[in-house]
């Protein structure tokens, strides 16, 4: 094999490469290829071709060799992260170690075979079913509770046996039909009638009024005539009519009561006995105190109001025996004793 003085050549980019021209095979060989040839001496054309393809491949990826990484690179199992080729290959190897065995895969296949052929609903059918269930859910939210239904049942049970028969209902319907179209009075009209009726006198009142009218009629029949009344008027006004008075002046008609009474600063009733003498026509109060006065009057009498009865003075009052009038007395100062006479 001829040797060329130039053991280095340049590629199209004028970069020198470790290659020599092989005159036997009429082509350039890489320097490493020459070393293999020199050691074995039995390189074949096929080997050379393979080596050249390898070398061409290596040449082609020149510049990207850094992305291959080193053997010590850690495995990368996340495909979203950047990594060297060796790290990615290690990651793939770890994944492959976690895959199931053939037996497991066979079981899964059998299970999938069972599921295959089932008549599963489609997504459309399931969506329609969901709509129906949602509608039922909404309706159930407004449905009666158990308690309400139980109450309704109790009411219905209470009506059991009490509902009219068809025959009775038909009879009632016929009766209502006969009432239809009648000219009934309105509520307003009935109220007005009721008010009118309330104003009417009852039969009892009418009887009472008749009795009064009958009495007036009887009295009128016995009344003096206009002529008689005129004669009476004349007799009364000309002084010719003689008149006799009847009655009596009030006199003491029963045994009087006498006693003493202590008059204090509290207005108290004045009488001689144990209580006010019934039908009394005379009341005398004699103040026996030489220096103090009392006041006499109604229940509200005070030491500055009422009728004053001075020291050693006597007050005499004529009383109406038909009116049970109490008389009160109060002292102007201190307590003093008075004599009381009631008749």
């Amino acid at each position: 094999m001829a040797t060329f003085p130039e053991n280095l050549n340049q590629d199209a980019s004028t970069i020198k490469t470790p290659a020599v021209y092989d005159s036997v095979i009429k082509q350039w060989l890489m320097f490493s290829q020459l070393l293999i040839l020199n050691n074995s001496g039995q390189v074949t054309k096929a080997q050379l071709d393979a080596f050249n393809r390898f070398a061409a491949t290596v040449y082609a990826i020149d510049g990207g060799i850094d992305s291959l990484g080193a053997r010590a690179d850690a495995a990368q199992t996340d495909p979203t992260k950047a990594a060297t080729a060796i790290a990615i290959l290690k990651g793939l190897l770890q994944h492959s170690l976690g895959l199931g065995t053939d037996a497991t895969l066979q079981d899964i296949k059998a299970a999938l075979g069972v599921l295959n052929g089932k008549d599963y609903a489609t997504q459309t059918t399931l969506a329609e079913a969901k709509e129906v269930l949602d509608a039922i859910k909404t309706a159930a939210a407004t449905a009666a509770t158990e308690a309400t239904l139980a109450a309704v049942k109790a009411v219905l049970d209470s009506l059991d046996g009490k509902v009219a028969t068809d025959a009775k209902l038909e009879a009632a319907r016929a009766l209502l039909a006969s009432l239809d179209g009648k000219d009934y009075a309105t509520q307003t009209t009935l109220a007005a009638v009721l008010a009118k009726l309330a104003d009417l006198a009852t039969a009892a009142k009418q009887d009472d009024a008749k009795a009064v009218l009958d009495a007036i009629k009887t009295s009128a029949a016995a009344a003096a005539t206009e002529a008689t009344l005129a004669a009476v008027k004349t007799a009364l006004t000309d002084g010719s009519q003689k008149v006799q008075l009847s009655g009596s002046k009030v006199r003491i008609a029963s045994a009087p009561a006498t006693g003493v009474k202590t008059v204090t600063g509290t207005a108290a009733e004045v009488f001689a006995g144990t209580s006010r003498k019934p039908g009394r026509s005379r009341l005398e109060i004699a103040n026996r105190h030489p220096a103090l006065a009392i006041r006499v009057g109604p229940a509200g009498v005070t030491d500055t109001t009422g009728r004053s009865v001075g020291p050693l003075a006597t007050l005499a009052l004529d009383m109406d025996p038909m009116s049970d009038v109490p008389i009160y007395a109060v002292s102007e100062a201190g307590a003093l004793t008075v004599e009381v006479f009631e008749a």
């Binding site: 509290t266 108290a268 009733e269 229940a299 109490p326 009160y328 109060v330």
Partner: peptide, 15 residues
């Protein structure tokens, strides 16, 4: 015996 005094129960009780 029965009598009347002006005022309430306290005045009457004193009388």
């Amino acid at each position: 015996g029965t009598t009347h005094v002006a005022g309430d129960g306290d005045a009457a009780r004193a009388y």
